[in-house]
Design a protein around this nucleic acid. Sequence first.
DNA 1: ATATTAACTAGGAATAATTCCTAGTTAGTT
DNA 2: AACTAACTAGGAATTATTCCTAGTTAATAT
Lengths: 127, 127
Amino acid sequence: MRFSRQRDIVLNVLQRTESHPTAEWIFDQVKREIPSISLGTVYRNLNQLADGGIIQRIFDNGHVRYDGKMDQHDHFRCIRCQQIFDVHLRLEDITKNIPQDYGFKVTGYALEIRGECHQCQTKETEQ
Amino acid sequence: MRFSRQRDIVLNVLQRTESHPTAEWIFDQVKREIPSISLGTVYRNLNQLADGGIIQRIFDNGHVRYDGKMDQHDHFRCIRCQQIFDVHLRLEDITKNIPQDYGFKVTGYALEIRGECHQCQTKETEQ
DNA sequence: ATATTAACTAGGAATAATTCCTAGTTAGTT
DNA sequence: AACTAACTAGGAATTATTCCTAGTTAATAT
Ligand SMILES: [Mn+2]
Ligand SMILES: [Mn+2]
Ligand SMILES: [Zn+2]
Ligand SMILES: [Zn+2]
């Protein structure tokens, strides 16, 4: 993988945010530094970075989002505002019985917890 | 929600399979009974059934699939053949600390385990 | 049984997300 | 400096899904 200004800025934009943005959002951010960048370039770089294990793809309601954090963590999605938050659980043992029970070899997992974020719970009681 | 032959067959096709099919696969199956059914009708009915809590949507690598089983269960996806299998884990406590740790109200979760299914592990050693 | 009508249908057009294509450019190597 | 594989912008193509419209029908009321 070769260094390019486009790839570098795509990666930095993603690594600087706490959110889990779409390709389109990343595109808008990168355009502020490289106005001529194309959406295809953003998609290509995101795919290369994800395939290279430098970023993660996360799948939210059938839409692809990206995550610059590569430490093992889980996600909480608010069913009202749709925001995605990181949560850190200690679930190393979660799949320990799968190999003997099912014969599957486990290489990873993704846990998405759903519910209402603090902000949306507060809004509800105000109304 | 009104009864229609189209909806009934869409639902029955989905409830009869162990797989987690796409709308397109369900469309092909239903066509064997109603050759004139349109793909739009399949999508509309799947959405209505999912919104009505009669079936589930599951999200696989950014693609939407459907699941006719509504009992709480988790999924294992083979990273080689991409098949999705049901796994039944007892994880009721998995999110019990989320409310105090993060202030989030939890209403559900989805766990996808990744790895290699039995068949694909066997194929590997044969080659 | 007949009338009524809101919810449905088929078929096809529209939309949206993502990938593909092409000709020109550039980062890294020699 | 020359080389070239990997890159880029821009736009076309593809794919999954939704939307639109005119006609049909399941469920209810008379
Ligand atoms: Mn994250
Ligand atoms: Mn299932
Ligand atoms: Zn929220
Ligand atoms: Zn497999």
